[in-house]
Every structure is written in structure tokens, then in C-alpha cells.
Design a protein around this nucleic acid. Structure first.
Length: 463
RNA sequence: UCCUCGAUAGCUCAAUGGUGGAGCAACCGGCUGUUAACCGGUAGGUUGUAGGUUCGAGUCCUACUCGGGGAGCCA
């Protein structure tokens, strides 16, 4: 008999009802009585379990009644309507084969566990309802990201993981070296001589694919990256990780407004995709993780994101200065408390904040005509904070070189980046989207460590 | 990295400076439709690590490790 998947049974019930089927899966719970019992199994194909009924007529009835949680079994039987209220159908077992008996000290019990504990058993936590739901949604949303951009004609560019550009200013970098760290070669001044290293220079793990992907943008017009990103910041928060995935679209012949339009359309697409394609998981999140999830997501789908300039945001916030630990004034970067107040209290939905003072933003962002602000934008969302950071890029070479000088960068190190402005450079824009932050936003999970399979944070790289 | 709170049975938590307990899980038994099944019983401990104060420390002090919340940095 050919094995059937639980997902097929749920999605095409009439095809299987009152038919013989074979299932295989892992035991989630066993409830026994003297002459019969129930097993719920999960076969990995679907969020929901299926209930198996077994009776004392089975030759191995006693053995089956003592099955431990997470044991693997194969069942042949008939799919029948269930008299119980909690499931529409159940499998009446005619034969149950024990494929693998799990040790009784299996650490996941039939009870609620804290996320903190589950992080210590990251190799087992995808077997829980919550993490099964999180990681199935994560997989679907990764696909949805590609679907969104590919169907719009974007070219997916694999930018390098190892980079020699050392001074992008996006964060502390992890060094990549093949030198013997116990005995590295030294130069005349006693410093490590990286010219003897594998690449003949200092190299690091990428903190952003942006500078590289801009080059492909000038060839393909619409491009995106989607890959791992590394920051050696000693951040200890619920929304930072040392290794995370980032999506960076870049569009030519486009300005900051086009950039924001794209970001808004993409966010709505991803939300709709999750609701349409993972309904069981999303209902679970709404019931057990964040009871406001559906209200929040529906509100976003049905409304336009707010858009304010930094200057307007500062004016709005200054009226509320009494409420803040750090009062707002023009020229300072917005504190987390200010960002939260904007998106959670004033607008109560996602808000783009644009046109920040040039002094607090990166050198490559396009200088506005006021000479004081740059065409940058952050997307702030309730509960998560900054989920997107982007800008229109400076395409005027003399302005760009001037900005690099202001912030102390050596333009020779960026010769190929500057070349883009020499050879058909046009206005263009792009942004970086933190993939994990999207998953947090879509699921209501509040710690980034719980939306990455094996999170890497400071002092934490077990598994 | 800073502020703050915490770490006790496999898990979630109690225990006034004076004999470390409970619920759940595990194990044994019972139960004819269960739904985190239920009922009875058994076993389970170097109180995060290293020092210190004290007649006596889970409890007080110091350092460290890890975790939660907040901040900085950002995605």
C-alpha cells in the first residue's frame, strides 16, 4: 500500500474517507484505556495531527499502549468519520508497526514549554506546534519573496559572502582569514601582515550586499539579493542576531517614492501570501502567540502605509516630549522610544520616515536639494520597530566623492563603485529588508532567536 | 557594551538565615470514546559555577556564566 500524507487527507478528505490508507509519522501523544486507546501522530507534512484509534484486537496492543512520545510508527487502517468533537476524521488502525521507539527521557512533554527552554534544545524544537508553524511559514515566505520579485522581472543576484570592502560602515565585521592565528606573519611594524593571507588583503563576512548589487542594477535594471548577512555587533536584544538573512532589492530609473511604493507592495504581498497559504499556522499564531495578529495584518492589508519626513516626525514628536526619556530635537537620530511612539501610538500602522539629516546616515544616500537631508527611508512597524532601511542612492559622482571625503572614506577603495557613476549612472534606489523581522511581524513571535533555526548571537553558537 | 531582574527535580514554580516541597513529565497499576484524558501509587536534588560571611547559606556578600526585560547599534 502506498503511504498517504496527512496534508492530502486534510485537503482532499472525500478522496480518502472510508478508504484504506497507510500513514507514517511520529507520536505526539498516547491515551490508553483497558481495551482501546488513541494516538495522535504528526507526519511532518502538515501542521495538524491525525488521531489513530487502536483496539485490543491488535496483536501488539500492549506494546502500542506504551509507546513513548516521538516514537516513529507506521499504521494501516481505514479513515473513518470521528465521533469526537475535536477532529473531523480518524484512522481506525488495523496494523501498527513500531519503526523506532523513542527513549522515555524525551525532553518535550505534553505541556507548554517556555521559548527560553526550547532554545536550549534547538535540535528538537521544530517538533513543537509553535516552531513547526514558524518554520513552515518561514519557508513559504522565502518562496514568496522570490515569487514577488521574479514575477515582476527582477534578477536574483548572488552577492559575495566574503568581502574585501572593509569600510561600508554598516556594522562591525567578522574577519575571514586562513592565517595561523597562533603565529601570524608580521610586517616591519609588528602588525599582522594580511598581504600574506589567502586573499592577500583583509577580508570579512558581508554586512550588506548593497554595493555589489548596485553594479548589477546598472545592467539588469531591477535586481534583488536574498542571502545571509553577518554583523559582529555585541547586540543583546530580541531583534538582533549575528547571522541573519536580508533581502535587498535595487531599482534603476527610480527615486525614493518608487522605493517606498515597492516596499509597501512587497510587505502586503508577503502578508497575503502567509494568510492564503498557511491558514492553519496563522490561526495558531493568532490564538496562542498574539491575539491581535489578524486584526493587525488585516489593518495593514486594507490601509496605506503612513509616510512622513523626518522633519515632520520630529515636529509630531516634539509635542509629546514630556513622555520621552530623551526629548526629540531636529538633527538627532530617533530613539527606539520615538520610533515606537510614531508607529504604535500616532499612526497605529506601518510608517515610512524619510529624508533624514545627512549627518546620521550613510555616505551613499542621495543628498537632497536642501543640502541638509538625504533621500533615506526607514519603515517602522508596530511591535518590531525598524523592518526596512533604504534610500535613493547618490548618482552624482562629484557629490558622492564629496560625501566620502566628509566621512573620511578613501575614494580609491571604492573605484568600482564610483565607476557606476561614470558609465551610464542613473538615479536608482533600494532597501534592505530583515527577513527574520518579517517573520516576527507575520507570526507575532517577539524574539528573533525563535524565528531562526539555529540562532547565532553573542556567546551563543551551540548546534 | 550599559541598566535591571532572574537561575532550586526532566519542565513550570514554592521554601522567614535553622530537616529542600508541589503540579506536570517518567515508572508501576486501574479505567469501554479520549482531546495537555482521568484515578491511585513509586522514584526523582552537589539549589548555575567559583569563592566569601556565619555555629549553620537555596536564602546574605563578591566575581563569573547563561537567560528575560529595557537601552545603544541596526535589518
Amino acid at each position: 500500500m502506498q503511504s498517504t500524507l496527512v496534508k492530502e487527507i486534510y485537503r482532499e478528505t472525500t478522496r480518502f474517507l472510508n478508504q484504506k490508507v497507510e500513514l507514517s509519522g511520529w507520536v505526539r501523544t498516547v491515551r490508553t484505556s483497558k481495551a482501546f486507546g488513541f494516538i495522535e501522530i504528526n507526519d511532518g507534512s502538515f501542521f495538524e495531527n491525525i488521531q489513530v484509534v487502536f483496539e485490543e484486537g491488535l496483536t501488539n496492543f500492549a506494546e502500542i499502549g506504551k509507546l513513548t512520545i516521538s516514537s516513529a510508527i507506521r499504521i494501516q487502517g481505514e479513515l473513518v468519520p470521528s465521533p469526537g468533537a475535536k477532529q473531523p476524521f480518524e484512522l481506525k488502525a488495523e496494523n501498527i508497526e513500531v519503526l523506532s521507539l523513542a527513549s522515555a527521557d524525551y525532553p518535550l512533554q505534553k505541556k507548554r514549554h517556555t521559548f527560553e527552554y526550547l532554545r536550549t534544545i534547538a535540535h528538537l524544537r521544530p517538533r513543537t506546534n509553535t516552531f513547526a508553524a514558524v518554520f513552515r511559514v518561514r519557508s513559504m515566505i522565502a518562496y514568496a519573496v522570490h515569487k514577488f520579485f521574479q514575477e515582476k522581472g527582477y534578477v536574483y543576484v548572488h552577492t559575495p559572502i566574503i568581502t574585501g570592502s572593509d569600510a561600508e560602515g554598516a556594522g562591525e565585521m567578522f574577519k575571514v582569514t586562513a592565517l595561523d592565528l597562533a603565529n601570524p606573519p608580521k610586517d616591519g611594524e609588528g602588525n599582522v601582515d594580511f598581504s600574506k593571507d589567502f586573499f592577500g588583503r583583509v577580508t570579512s563576512l558581508t554586512v550588506s550586499g548593497q554595493l555589489n548589487v548596485e553594479t548589477y542594477c546598472m545592467a539588469f535594471r531591477k535586481v534583488y539579493t536574498f542571502g545571509p548577512t553577518f554583523r559582529a555587533e555585541n547586540s543583546n536584544t530580541a531583534r538582533h542576531a549575528a547571522e541573519f538573512w536580508m533581502i535587498e532589492p535595487e531599482i534603476a530609473f527610480a527615486d525614493l517614492a518608487d522605493n517606498m511604493n515597492l516596499a509597501e507592495e512587497m510587505m502586503k504581498f508577503l502578508i497575503q501570501y502567509a494568510l492564503d497559504n498557511a491558514p492553519e499556522e496563522m490561526v495558531f499564531f493568532n490564538n496562542f502567540v498574539d491575539k491581535t495578529l489578524f486584526d493587525r495584518l488585516e489593518n495593514i492589508l486594507n490601509s496605506e502605509f503612513a509616510r512622513v519626513t523626518y522633519t515632520e516626525a520630529v515636529e509630531l514628536l516634539e509635542k509629546e516630549n514630556a513622555k520621552f526619556e530623551y526629548p526629540v530635537r531636529w538633527g538627532m537620530d530617533l530613539q527606539t522610544e520615538h520610533e515606537r511612539y510614531l508607529t504604535e501610538k500616532i499612526f497605529q500602522k506601518p510608517v515610512f520616515v524619510s529624508d533624514y539629516p545627512k549627518g546620521i546616515k550613510a555616505f551613499y544616500m542621495r543628498l537632497n536639494d536642501d543640502n541638509k537631508t538625504v533621500a533615506a527611508m526607514d519603515l517602522l512597524v508596530p511591535g518590531v520597530g525598524e523592518i526596512i532601511g533604504g534610500s535613493q542612492r547618490e548618482e552624482r559622482i562629484e557629490v558622492l566623492e564629496g560625501r566620502m571625503q566628509e566621512v573620511g572614506l578613501n575614494s580609491e577603495d571604492y573605484w568600482w563603485y564610483l565607476d557606476l557613476r561614470r558609465y551610464g549612472g542613473v538615479k536608482h534606489a533600494g532597501y534592505g529588508l530583515g527577513f527574520e523581522r518579517v517573520i516576527m511581524y507575520l507570526t507575532g513571535i517577539s524574539n528573533i532567536r525563535d524565528v531562526i533555526s539555529f540562532p547565532r548571537t553573542a556567546n551563543s553558537s551551540e548546534f
